[in-house]
Design a protein around this nucleic acid. Structure first.
Length: 209
DNA sequence: TCTAAGATGGGT
DNA sequence: CCCATCTTAGAA
């Protein structure tokens, strides 16, 4: 049996169903080789964004300098600055002109853990990649790397034979502005993973809306 | 030009 | 609950 890492091929990303791709990415491995340091981990939480139907997607009815990369070739990085502070890493999918993307929300640290702790001010291993902002910080991914080819040797995704996983589907985080589309169950995570970001509890008042 | 809001995370 | 921090999109 082949138990080596194998970089995902272009065909993985060019498929048309971004929700399917978001699920398929669970259990795969995201690596970076930045500033001479190899870092990476197992993908345990993702979110799908569809540019044609989904108000939560940055590219929904918007083709601007920032979102242009989402309309371009699949298998590239879309990295943007969130709240002026956090660099969020997405994977562009689908064909040119069809703007879909998958947000990577959490990893289980595997490689370069010491380096990731250093980049994260030596926090505990549970706190270095369990969230979309902090995993980018741990891997050294910055918004300047938007457009990076994921078939290259700076940021890439690989698979390897692994035990079957149980997938949970739930609503996405922080997309209330999308109205009814905020209710879509397009967040996926590996059941019982210790590295899925903690959900903030809503107060009863917030839940009522 | 001006400005509100944001696919978060850390601290009180 | 509060706040950092800055880009972006859309309004004026």
């Amino acid at each position: 049996m082949n138990n080596q890492y194998e970089k995902l091929p272009k065909a993985f990303y060019s498929r048309g169903d971004v929700v399917e791709i978001a699920k398929d990415l669970l259990g795969k491995f995201l690596f970076s080789n930045i500033d001479g340091k190899l870092t990476g981990g197992r993908i345990v939480e993702t979110e799908a964004y569809n540019g044609r139907t989904d108000k939560a997607c940055h590219a929904y009815k918007k083709r601007t300098p920032r979102t242009e990369v989402i309309y371009q070739e699949s298998g590239r990085a879309y990295v943007y600055l969130c709240y002026g502070i956090h660099h969020l890493f997405n994977i562009v999918t689908n064909e040119v002109g069809l703007a879909d993307a998958v947000l990577i929300r959490a990893l289980e640290p595997i490689d370069g853990i010491d380096e990731m702790k250093k980049r994260r001010s030596k926090q505990s291993v549970e706190r270095i990649t369990a969230g979309p902002g902090i995993l980018s910080q741990a891997l050294g991914i910055k918004k300047e790397m938007t457009g990076e080819d994921l078939l290259g040797n700076t940021i890439w995704i690989a698979s390897k034979n692994n035990d079957p996983i149980q997938i949970v589907a739930d609503v996405r985080i922080g997309v209330d502005y999308a109205g009814e589309d905020a209710l879509l169950p397009w967040r996926f995570y590996i059941k019982d993973s210790n590295y899925v970001g903690k959900e903030k509890k809503k107060t009863p008042a917030e839940s009522r809306g």
